[in-house]
Write a protein that binds this DNA or RNA. Structure first.
Lengths: 174, 174
DNA sequence: GGTAGCGATTGCGTTCCGCAACCACTATAT
DNA sequence: ATATAGTGGTTGCGGAACGCAATCGCTACC
């Protein structure tokens, strides 16, 4: 990749400035999808397989991901590097903006809302857990459920709630 | 623009996920370039005029910018809306990541370094000044130079320093 | 030896990018 | 009046990237 300028913002845009790279990272980080198939079939936006393959190669080349050694026909585990883990604030900033200024699905928005309410320290907590998952760091001692556990619980609860509402709405609409 | 999903991150990516939109915002915000010509000729990365025109239209349509009423042949002033001002944390997050994980020019990196050192409250200060510049908000009373003034001074000082070094380096290299 | 799952790859049409030239208009100077 | 510089774009075109569907070569399982 030829660099267009030495600006740090441009440097990030050159790598992540397309319609899919960030979404792939999102699914790896928040969805814990670490295999090609999971990323492909679990994609809400419906990424094509060649695009996914291309982005994974580029992210590995950029040092954001590592690919577990796997021969053809075997599952290859993708892991975040430290630089990949530190893209989390970028994802957060994008989602935070989208939450305020773009329409969207309530259930999906609840995850972003939960992070916002939890405050900036929560991001560090998430990144610590990613280091455990992806880099084999020793888990930190804590009481209660982990950060991702709480985040997923909030998302599941909201999905439950909206599902109920959709039913009652259907009933009321009769 | 058709929405691929209701995810807030995706919503932001749909608008800003290309190779130029973020850089245009960067030049408007940090470079205070508010006219077509300034954005075109001042672009470090060398944006083409048709791409710039297209991105300005899209950003205006998305409600991130407003275009001052100007007939053909007259200067049209572009202003940030509140939603445009609030993209600043996204730019910051991108630059912060680029500063750590990508090579770059020292002078351009110094601006990002300054913001990082100044802490998160500095971002709010910058956004307040943008509201004065772009939305006509009343300037806040403060002592000393403004946030952008300090930021530009840091950038100028670093450019001066590296220019000196380049001269001494040239002399030493003879 | 058939089936399912794995990570891709190929072909092909569409869209986007990037470059250069050009346009219509205004303002200013001569 | 005419020339010149400056304004925000527009057009044409070749090449690159994107996006979709189908397919591939491989492994594991039974």
């Amino acid at each position: 990749m030829e660099q267009r300028s030495g600006c740090p913002i441009n440097a990030a845009v050159e790598l992540l400035g397309d319609r899919w790279s960030v979404l792939v990272l999102r699914d790896i980080i928040f969805g814990d999808r670490r295999y090609f198939r999971g990323l492909l079939t679990g994609s809400v936006e419906g990424i094509a397989s060649n695009i996914l393959a291309d982005r994974l190669v580029r992210l590995v080349e950029a040092g954001i991901l590592t690919r577990g050694t796997a021969a053809r026909g075997q599952r290859a585990l993708y892991s975040l590097t430290e630089s990949g883990i530190q893209t989390l604030p970028i994802l957060y900033a994008l989602g935070d903006w989208g939450l305020d200024w773009r329409p969207g699905d309530d259930a999906l928005r609840s995850r972003q809302q939960f992070m916002r309410d939890a405050g900036p320290a929560f991001l560090d907590e998430l990144m610590d857990e990613l280091r455990v998952r992806h880099l084999g760091a020793p888990p930190k001692q804590r009481r209660g459920p982990g950060a991702f556990e709480r985040l997923d619980a909030a998302y599941a609860a909201e999905r439950e709630r909206t599902a109920c509402e959709s039913v009652t709405g259907t009933l009321a609409g009769r």
